[in-house]
């Protein structure tokens, strides 16, 4: 799927640029996009090291497993492929909790830790498992109780009631999360995607199209 989306973005940009005369601009943009990507990645090193260090302590202290056990009733249904007190569960909960609180700096490292744990249960090393897709979908829809960034913008713009959007954001992101879970589950059952499931026992193939 990403193959199509990625190529479509580049091809549409090129064709549009022919008509809008922005050909030099898209060239510059490609280069600066690549630069931004590297800056973002390198900028993550410190915060990643910090949170992965803390997470390792939490793991050794048994905290992650404890968290995993607490949310077992919910996660058992959402992630049937994962053993209920696997550390992946605890890591996912911490990531979602960081999202709820609007702590985006902490959320990314915690989410990547969760992806790593999920990957340890994935039989394929290049194809996403159902659990990974579901976790990702929940993350892109992330419920936020305190959308700190946008509140900051509103305060700066002199809003009389900068927090009025908390309730509406919470409602919208909850709807998005419910849809994310349903869609990820349903799409996973479609033959196209079911066939490529790396953990689908009968057809243990990893050379799916997407």
């Amino acid at each position: 799927m990403l193959n199509y989306v990625w190529f479509a973005l580049v091809a549409i940009a090129f064709i549009t640029a022919i008509f809008t005369g922005k050909m030099p601009d898209i060239g510059t943009a490609a280069v600066s996009g690549a630069e931004t990507a590297v800056n973002i990645s390198l900028g993550l090193i410190g915060i990643m090291a910090l949170w992965l260090g803390i997470m390792k302590i939490a793991e050794e202290a048994g905290l992650i497993k404890l968290l995993a056990r607490i949310i077992k009733p919910v996660t058992k249904r959402l992630f049937p492929e994962i053993p209920p007190d696997h550390p992946a569960m605890g890591a996912m909960l911490l990531n979602l909790a960081a999202n709820w609180l609007g702590l985006s700096n902490a959320a990314t490292p915690l989410g990547l830790k969760a992806m790593e744990e999920l990957q340890s249960l994935n039989k394929s090393n290049d194809t996403a498992s159902n659990s990974q897709v579901l976790f990702l979908a929940m993350n892109t829809a992330s419920i936020t109780i305190i959308p700190a960034t946008i509140i900051g913008v509103r305060v700066a713009a002199g809003s009389k009631d900068p927090f009025s959007i908390i309730a509406t954001s919470l409602f919208a992101s909850t709807c998005a999360t419910i849809v994310a879970v349903l869609v990820a589950k349903l799409l996973g059952r479609l033959p196209v995607f079911h066939k490529t499931d790396p953990n689908n026992p009968p057809a243990k193939q990893t050379k799916g199209k997407e």
Binding site: N125, D126, A128, T140, S173, A180, G188, F193
Partner: peptide, 24 residues
Amino acid sequence: YFGSVAIKKTRHAVPAGLIADAAG
């Protein structure tokens, strides 16, 4: 997220994420 575990075949992640965005 997928890059960190070197996953290249993302299966239904793109449609699921975009549909969730639209719903939001």
